[in-house]
């Protein structure tokens, strides 16, 4: 008989080790892939530097472009709301910080639970809004493929189960805590092989964009 407690022990034990292992191996190999592809040598005479504009673009791309905001305000607003809600819940909930501290050997101060709770609600609401947008906006619908929906589910489940676990809305608690950890394990396993990789690669992409434009002496 699989009991909630056995299930919790399994997701906290073997399953976590396996999914974390796949995550780390996958991410490292993906980086090797990206770097080893390299770039073709550019023989044109550079008109500017690469490093400065590259680093600057990493920061400036945090601000949405005015035209995009005008055309797709919901994408921009809901996108920001869900990312901020997700990041606050992930990095400032004390039990999560304990996990990072156990992994990396250092932690940081957490936020009071009512604030994290509000952030999680924002995250869930933001994710529902982006899904609604994806399903109702004809352009978004056309652009979406299976992976987009898969990634949405992978992101939504940890937030939802985390919210249910924190509010103890499912009995017994070991079951919902176990489901929350399991949802994270699915997230970790598929992370390197889906567009979830953007968590890391966005910095490379932004740098590359900025550097390319910088070399040509134009604004990025």
């Amino acid at each position: 008989m699989i009991e909630p407690m056995d299930f919790l022990l399994w997701v906290r034990g073997t399953a976590f080790d396996v999914s974390l292992g796949i995550f780390v191996i996958g991410v490292v190999v993906r980086f090797f892939e990206i770097f080893s592809l390299g770039r073709a040598a550019n023989f044109a005479e550079p008109r500017g530097t690469e490093f400065g504009p590259g680093m600057r673009t990493i920061l400036t791309r945090n601000i949405p472009e005015a035209g995009t905001f005008k055309r797709q305000p919901l994408t921009v607003i809901a996108g920001y709301v869900f990312h901020i809600g997700l990041l606050i819940s992930l990095f400032f909930f004390v039990p999560h910080i304990q996990l990072f501290a156990a992994t990396f050997g250092f932690g940081w101060p957490g936020l009071p639970t009512p604030i994290v709770d509000a952030a999680a609600v924002l995250g869930i609401a933001g994710l529902l809004a982006v899904l609604w947008n994806r399903l109702t906006n004809p352009v978004m619908k056309l652009l979406s493929d299976k992976e987009d929906y898969l990634v949405w589910v992978l992101t939504f489940l940890p937030l939802l189960t985390g919210y249910l676990a924190y509010h103890r809305m499912v009995d017994p608690y070991p079951l919902i805590l176990g489901l929350h950890i399991l949802s994270i394990e699915f997230f970790l396993i598929l992370f390197p092989f889906t567009k979830l990789m953007h968590t890391f690669t966005l910095f490379l992409a932004r740098w590359y964009n900025g550097a390319m434009h910088g070399r040509r002496g134009v604004e990025s």
């Binding site: 034990g13 976590f16 080790d17 039990p95 304990q98 996990l99 156990a102 992994t103 805590l177």
Partner: peptide
């Protein structure tokens, strides 16, 4: 802490 997996994650 309860949130820390049982294995040696480091």
């Amino acid at each position: 802490a309860l949130s820390i997996p049982t294995g040696d994650i480091s």
